[in-house]
């Protein structure tokens, strides 16, 4: 039997996990209107998966370079709050507001990039720190009433609310998500930058020696993530029709979880955006199913944590077996 390609194998496993979950919830929570397996509910799942998937595209880029971003949730809140301020205090047109939001997102990414790539602070510490910095900034610029109590800012601009809907059940959010995923996949597969991402993730030293500007590759990945965070923030606030300081609390977990389930190895150098999309769908299906079964929603935190550990352990074991097999084969060929 011809041995299966490692990435194909991993893709099959994540698709299989998703399929098993769908079948499981169909049996437990039933099919038909108002139940789990119904067109409306499935679209709802895809919609819930969209924001983690969009931001997951950026986070995938970062993880491929063997980095991580823990600040996405807080950066989302900051982008939302900046737009809320513009909405509240200026008469700037809608497009300018959105543009400012995107710029803030990119700026957040740029700061992360500088901290990680230029200052050489370990990724998870640097972004853990910016996580609290961005959240604090959100509180500082939050819109307050005369007594200094933070208000949630309703954002009911007609064009803005429009973003929360779609053509029938096909929400604009889902379309944007698909576009971002396709662009992300094209960048990874068919551009020089994509190839560079993989080489940096596989070995920074080797990448430097072969003439790749590692710092720039990392910076661009963080900046791109900032951009996707801004898109996520725009659609979150459009759907909620308001901006609050609590947006994105504990969110940073979701895109990372999606990437991990989808086969993006945290040691860097492997995985792709389609995998992350499958992972995001998996997580959204899990959340939806837990809700449909009327289980205590707190259980989802436990289940998610266990799934991530299980997948990561699986990846580690799988990788060490492949490495071992490759070594043995190499030794054998050497002998011959």
């Amino acid at each position: 039997m011809k041995k299966m390609n490692q990435t194909t194998m991993r893709r099959l496993i994540s698709v299989g996990m998703l399929a098993v979950l769908v079948i499981l919830f169909t049996i437990l929570a039933g099919a038909g209107k108002g139940n789990f397996l119904h067109f409306d509910n499935l679209i709802e799942i895809v919609r819930d998966a969209s924001i983690p998937a969009i931001i997951g595209v950026g986070v995938t880029f970062i993880i491929i370079t063997a980095g991580i971003d823990l600040s996405t949730g807080s950066a989302m809140a900051l982008v939302g709050m900046v737009m809320a301020n513009i909405y509240e205090y200026t008469l700037w047109p809608f497009k300018v507001m959105v543009l400012c939001g995107i710029l803030v997102g990119i700026l957040c990414g740029l700061i992360n990039g500088i901290i990680v790539a230029k200052l050489h602070v370990p990724e998870f510490i640097g972004t853990l720190a910016t996580m609290s910095v961005y959240r604090a900034l959100t509180y500082i610029i939050a819109i307050k009433d005369a007594n200094g109590v933070i208000q949630s800012e309703p954002m009911t601009h007609s064009q803005y609310v429009w973003l929360g809907y779609g053509i029938g059940k096909f929400y604009y959010l889902i379309m944007v998500m698909l576009v971002v995923v396709v662009i992300g996949q094209i960048i990874l597969r068919y551009t020089r930058y994509g190839t560079n991402l993989y080489s940096v993730g596989a070995s920074k030293k080797a990448a430097t020696l072969s003439g790749i500007n590692v710092e720039r590759v990392q910076m661009v990945a963080y900046i791109f993530t900032g951009f996707t965070v801004a898109i996520g923030a725009i659609f979150t606030t459009a759907r909620l029709q308001s901006a609050t300081t609590a947006i994105g609390t504990n969110f940073e977990f979701n895109p990372i979880a999606a990437a991990v389930v989808g086969g993006v190895a945290l040691s860097g150098g492997s995985g792709d955006v389609i995998g992350t999309l499958i992972g995001a769908l998996f997580m959204a299906t899990l959340e939806n199913g837990v809700r449909k079964l009327d289980m205590n929603t707190s259980y989802q935190y436990i289940i998610k944590g266990i799934i991530i550990i299980a997948v990561v352990i699986f990846d580690a074991v799988y990788k060490s077996r492949i490495d071992k097999a490759a070594k043995e084969q190499g030794a054998k060929e050497g002998l011959e």
Binding site: S298, G305, V312
Partner: peptide, 9 residues
């Protein structure tokens, strides 16, 4: 990072 979620739950 993963166990953090478990303990919270």
């Amino acid at each position: 990072f993963a166990t953090q979620s478990i303990f919270l739950g």
